[in-house]
Computed example of a mutant assay.
Amino acid sequence: MAKEGVPWTVGFFAAALLFMMLSRRLSLEPLRYLGWICGLVALLVAYFFRDPRRKPPEGEGLVVSAADGRVAEIERGVREEIYLQSKAVRVGLILSLWDVHINRAPVSGLVELLKYVPGGFWPAFTRRARRENEHNLLGIQGSEGKVLVKQVAGLLARRIVCRVRMGDAVTRGQKFGLIRLGSRVEVFLPETVELKVKRGDRLLAGETILGVFR
């Protein structure tokens, strides 16, 4: 489980036990129902913050997915001025409430850009979310080229976590953060990268090959 989920899970389990104990001591049936509800919420929180083991593929020039989710958009010829400063390929992923929400580095390299941008909280699947929502930018200089990851908050996902710092060395598939509840992640790649995914594909962070540098 991601460490961000531990306090919530423990808290709801503790509340469940407390309500159950009070229900028995005071003979109040509604407290028992509250205990069951808190226990159920604790299980849901633990499921949401689950952290399954992932094995990144081996090979030269590989770019893996930064997030679990469905490929909602692929846009070529995008002018990316913040980090790549060139035309790029943008791959937009939508994460449902039930996807694993831990984000992973697409390539090995050095963190050269970290930028938090405040904004709104439109639903993750809308165009306004991509343009206007709160987001965090992570730029990685890999051996083959630069990659930019954009963590985007959504209507429910109002907490972006990024655990790396400027100058950190990351490895392909390494966990670097998460977005709580349903959200959106975008990856900007140089046009020299040959994509290996298409719209509608479901990807696994750190395992699914997004593309290959050519």
Rank of each mutant, 00 (worst) to 15 (best):
H135C: 12
G177H: 06
Q141N: 13
R172C: 02
K175S: 09
V161Y: 09
L204A: 12
I140M: 03
G139V: 13
T171N: 11
R202V: 12
D168P: 11
T171S: 15
E134H: 04
E132R: 10
N133R: 00
K150N: 08
G139Q: 12
G154V: 09
V152I: 15
G145R: 10
L181Q: 06
E207M: 04
L178M: 15
A157G: 13
E186M: 03
T192N: 14
L155M: 13
E144H: 14
K175C: 10
E186I: 04
E144P: 07
R180S: 11
F125P: 12
N136C: 11
R131T: 15
L203G: 05
L189Q: 04
V197E: 03
D168A: 11
I140R: 03
R158I: 00
V197I: 11
E207T: 04
H135W: 09
R128I: 11
L189H: 04
D168Y: 15
E194L: 02
T208R: 00
L138H: 00
Q174P: 05
V152S: 00
A205C: 05
V185I: 14
S143Q: 10
V187A: 01
R165Y: 12
L156C: 09
C162N: 12
N136T: 11
A157Y: 01
E186V: 02
G173E: 06
E207P: 07
K150R: 14
R165V: 13
M166H: 15
L156W: 09
I160F: 06
E132M: 14
E132N: 08
K146H: 03
G200Y: 04
E134L: 06
E207V: 09
E134I: 00
L137S: 00
E134V: 08
E134K: 03
I140A: 05
V147E: 07
M166Q: 14
G139F: 08
T192Y: 05
K175P: 11
I140C: 02
V185T: 15
A129P: 00
E191F: 09
F125K: 09
E191H: 08
Q141M: 13
G182D: 15
I160R: 00
R131H: 13
A129Y: 04
G173L: 05
V147D: 04
A157E: 07
L156D: 02
R163N: 13
R128F: 11
D168M: 14
R202Y: 07
L178G: 06
R199I: 13
G206R: 05
Q174K: 07
F188P: 03
G200K: 00
R184P: 00
L178Y: 10
R128D: 13
A153T: 14
R163L: 10
R128Q: 15
L189A: 01
R180D: 07
L138C: 05
F188D: 01
K150Q: 10
L156V: 12
G139C: 08
I160Q: 12
V149Y: 06
R202N: 00
L178A: 09
Q174T: 03
R128A: 11
E186R: 02
R202H: 02
C162I: 08
R131M: 15
F176R: 02
E186H: 04
V161P: 10
R165P: 10
R130E: 12
R202T: 10
